[in-house]
Amino acid sequence: MKHYEVEILDAKTREKLCFLDKVEPHATIAEIKNLFTKTHPQWYPARQSLRLDPKGKSLKDEDVLQKLPVGTTATLYFRDLGAQISWVTVFLTEYAGPLFIYLLFYFRVPFIYGHKYDFTSSRHTVVHLACICHSFHYIKRLLETLFVHRFSHGTMPLRNIFKNCTYYWGFAAWMAYYINHPLYTPPTYGAQQVKLALAIFVICQLGNFSIHMALRDLRPAGSKTRKIPYPTKNPFTWLFLLVSCPNYTYEVGSWIGFAIMTQCLPVALFSLVGFTQMTIWAKGKHRSYLKEFRDYPPLRMPIIPFLL
């Protein structure tokens, strides 16, 4: 059985960083990364991007050496992705923050609204209902991160945790300040508006959870398998008939419901920014589905049925 020789060059300087002799033909890129780490321990596998061309796409960890368009002496180019952190850690951090930050404003801890309001309670029912909904949303997200989601990528750049936390924590503080303010004004149409908004919120939260469970069942634990998601017997998953990412559709719907319930401008802005970002993600995933699966359902749109 022939063996391969693998040289790894710096993608920027073309400097030879490592030479691997007698590499098995069936070795994966993940195994080559581990061998590279032995000579350069500062670059652990998650930091490494190996590619066939200095400006090309990163090879997948599961790619097999003998199936790549290389000879028995293969040249790979290395790029440092920077310090990495696990997706689970990032999600837990960015979701735990809003949960606790919101509660600080809800309980009106000292130095927020003035001494005479310390630890007082709002007289408006919608304020307490909003706290329950907000807390439920982020507790749900935390539990899904721990027990439901299966991540195709193990890590992301460390800098992302600061960007994500600034976004989630900042908006949580902004909306919580106004919703729990002693001078907060309840919704214009009173109980009817709150009940309608609560119904929207609850339905969308159930829908979002149902989609996450359906997506989880598509991917076996520990794998990166991708399949076309289809509706199940659960009615909340029937939205798969019309959109590629109904989890985002339901998520946006939840925040629209919360915005109607609280009639709070920061919540509306958070919903708008979230919708914009999720639309970008949904379009990317939709394109990926179309590219990977020739039999992908043609009627589906990325996030909004028939429109977007």
Score class of each variant (00 low, 15 high):
Y178M: 14
H128Q: 05
H128Y: 06
I132T: 11
I132C: 01
I101T: 09
T279S: 13
T93C: 00
S254E: 08
Y44A: 01
L104V: 12
V243E: 12
D53H: 14
K285Y: 13
D118G: 12
K195V: 04
A191P: 11
Y77W: 15
P25A: 01
S86M: 02
P187Q: 01
T249S: 09
P45A: 13
W174N: 04
S271P: 10
V202S: 02
K16A: 11
I29A: 06
R79W: 10
K60A: 14
K57L: 04
E94A: 02
V127Y: 05
D53V: 07
V243D: 02
W87S: 05
Y44K: 08
Y106C: 04
A268V: 11
Y102A: 01
A173N: 12
I8N: 01
G253E: 04
H115L: 09
F147S: 10
V252T: 05
I256P: 02
G207Y: 04
P69F: 14
Q277Y: 13
S223P: 09
Y248N: 10
L242Q: 06
D10V: 04
L50Y: 02
G56V: 04
M261I: 08
L272I: 01
S254I: 13
S58N: 02
S86N: 08
S49F: 06
V64A: 12
F236E: 00
N160C: 14
E251T: 14
R123T: 02
T37R: 01
L269Q: 09
F201D: 03
R14K: 09
M213E: 15
E251Y: 14
F162I: 13
K195S: 15
C131E: 00
V273S: 09
Y138D: 02
H286R: 10
F270V: 04
A221T: 10
L239G: 14
I304T: 07
S49Q: 12
E24R: 14
Y4G: 05
V252M: 09
S223Y: 00
V90S: 12
V23D: 03
A83P: 12
S49L: 06
W169G: 09
F78V: 11
A176S: 09
T125M: 11
W87R: 03
P231G: 01
G207W: 15
P25Q: 13
P231V: 01
G71E: 12
G82Q: 15
V243T: 14
D217C: 15
W255F: 15
L50W: 12
G114C: 08
T166M: 00
P25H: 03
H124F: 15
G190R: 08
W169L: 06
F111S: 09
L50N: 01
C165P: 05
N247T: 10
I256L: 09
T39I: 05
Y177F: 07
F209G: 00
L99M: 05
L50T: 12
P157L: 08
Y177L: 06
K67Q: 08
R51E: 09
F293M: 06
F236V: 02
P182S: 05
K2L: 07
E7F: 13
A83N: 02
P45F: 13
Y184G: 15
Y178Q: 04
G207D: 01
P45N: 15
K22D: 07
G257D: 11
V6L: 09
G257N: 09
L142M: 02
I132P: 13
F111D: 13
E292S: 09
K233D: 15
N164A: 04
L158W: 14
G257I: 00
I304G: 00
T155L: 12
H137Y: 05
A46V: 07
T72S: 13
M261W: 04
G207S: 04
F293C: 10
I112A: 15
V64F: 09
H124R: 08
L183H: 09
Y44T: 10
G190C: 14
Y189S: 08
W87G: 07
Q277W: 13
I161S: 13
K12G: 01
T155D: 15
H137R: 01
F100D: 07
C165G: 12
T125L: 00
K22E: 09
H115N: 03
V88K: 04
F100E: 03
I260K: 11
F306C: 07
T145R: 02
T166S: 04
D80G: 09
N208Q: 13
Q48W: 10
R108K: 01
V267S: 12
T93S: 12
T249N: 08
Y230S: 13
Y113V: 02
A199Y: 15
D21S: 05
V194Y: 15
I304P: 14
L104Q: 05
K12C: 06
G257T: 14
Y177E: 03
T75F: 01
Y138Q: 15
H149W: 00
C133L: 13
R226M: 07
K67T: 13
L290V: 08
F240L: 10
L242R: 06
E62L: 15
I304V: 10
G154T: 05
I101C: 07
F119H: 05
V127P: 00
P298N: 06
Y178I: 14
L146N: 01
Y113G: 14
E7T: 00
I8M: 10
H181L: 05
H149D: 03
Y184Q: 15
P235N: 00
F91R: 07
K33E: 08
K22Y: 10
R150D: 14
H153L: 10
I228M: 06
V23T: 07
H128R: 09
T145I: 13
Y250N: 11
T37K: 15
L20Y: 14
P98L: 02
L196V: 06
A30F: 13
E24L: 08
Q193V: 14
C133Q: 10
V70I: 11
A74T: 06
P157I: 15
T28M: 03
T93K: 07
L50S: 06
T232Q: 02
D118N: 10
L92S: 15
F100W: 04
C245R: 06
F107I: 00
H3T: 01
C131P: 14
T276S: 10
E31H: 10
T188P: 11
Q193K: 08
V252G: 11
N160R: 01
A11G: 06
G56N: 03
W43P: 05
H3A: 09
L20T: 13
G114N: 13
T73A: 11
T279I: 12
A173M: 14
F91M: 04
H40V: 01
K16N: 06
R300P: 04
L9V: 04
D118A: 03
H128I: 13
L35C: 02
F36L: 10
T225N: 08
K16R: 11
K55C: 14
F240Y: 10
F258T: 14
H26Q: 06
T262M: 07
P41R: 01
K233R: 10
